[in-house]
Design a protein around this nucleic acid. Sequence first.
DNA 1: GCATGATCATGC
DNA 2: GCATGATCATGC
Length: 469
Amino acid sequence: MYKYDETNPSSIECYAKQLIGKTFADVVIEDSAPINEVQESSDYAASHEDKNYKGGLGTLIEERFFHYGANSDDRPDFPEAGVELKVTPFKINPNGTYSAKERLVLTMIDYFSVVNEEFEDSHMWRKAKLILLIYYLYDKSITNRLFYKIHFANLFSPPEQDKKIIMHDFYLIRDKIAAGKAHELSEGDTLYLGAVTKAATSANRRKQPYSDELAKPRAFSFKVSYMTYVLNNYIIPGKETYEHIIQDDFEEDFEAYVINKVKRYSGKSIKHLCNEFDVDLTKKPKNLEAMLAYKMLGIKGNNAEEFVKANIVVKAIRIGSNNKIKEHMSFPTFKFKELIEEDWDNSVFGNYLRDTRFFFVIYKADENGELYVKGGQFWNIPYNDLETDVRSVWEQTKKVIREGLIINNVNGINTNNLPKQTENRACHVRPHARNAADTYELPDGRHYTKQCFWLNNSYIYSQIDNELK
DNA sequence: GCATGATCATGC
DNA sequence: GCATGATCATGC
């Protein structure tokens, strides 16, 4: 192996490419260390509070491949080159596509210092602007992580268009802390850069500068959705790219830009839009309104690059002339036996709402039932609604299933004691299946129609901006 | 007319 | 075949 020039990013990258095709165990062995040190390495990792050894694999590469001592200060790992080293997993999905397995944690948020930072000179950006990404393939059949194989080693710098969005995300997080709301931060607040919780236990809380409320410790991170995009578009050559929403006239604020695009169609009817976009109304696809939302953004298909990267879910919302939203909002079904093993802080549904930002495209019906565009609105669930209302429904659901679901069958129609719409302002549980015979197993061995959490239509309505109602 | 349970339509 | 988004149907 040749030595690298630690002041030169491409020299470091070039050296790193020797890792491709090797396992972590190979790296240690080729470092001509006694084999028992392989075990020591993993003990070392385990003692560093990260039970997945992720920090450990990074440390291993630093110490056994690059041969520098890990610094724990806020400089990049290669200070003279300005390069930060990140060792991160990806996975191959059943359908053959590649996804990042995890978010990429950049640096802890210091609530007291970040409020005085500007983006370009922030701790976060110093750690994010030039990253050497070492991707290894996660494989759950491999129990010893040292036998994971490294597949890619690439320098990565967020491109200019991404940088604008990351900067906007940074200021949104900073300003929320400056407003004394560090305890209300949520990953769904932002697009590519998230503020992820980093608490080992729920008892772990930090002070914040402009409020007496204690806040969860959080770190700046690139979201999984963004990292998946990075992997497929910048790391693996020749992969597909999606259509862009952003055109040349884009300024600073992505969300305002998107909202403006939809606003241009405000007052137009569905009929008018179908005509303009050449959509065949006689077929009336069920997802027509969502489809038209993409057309208004200039997207032919239903995959916009920026939405994919930011994990934004488009929802069409139809308000009737009686000022009620016609339908409740459904989510993926849950498995009864899995739900009762979860705790709320790590629950599938809780995490979905924490991590997802929605783009509502709002239509309103006139007296004849004809739908007109009102506008667009980005939304993620407010912290208190999630942690009180939705949480209580989730806890109740878990309790009911755990204690044994009560089912009554009258004339072929099942009724049950899961949380009903009338019991909570935000959320309820209802069937979501192909038909009543489409079931999952209950903990006691019975089978029951697949269910999911729904957000109440009245709750969604309360979240819509007044000028869009 | 609403609440709740049941089912449809589409894409992968 | 299934997940997902969306909507239908019935009894009160």
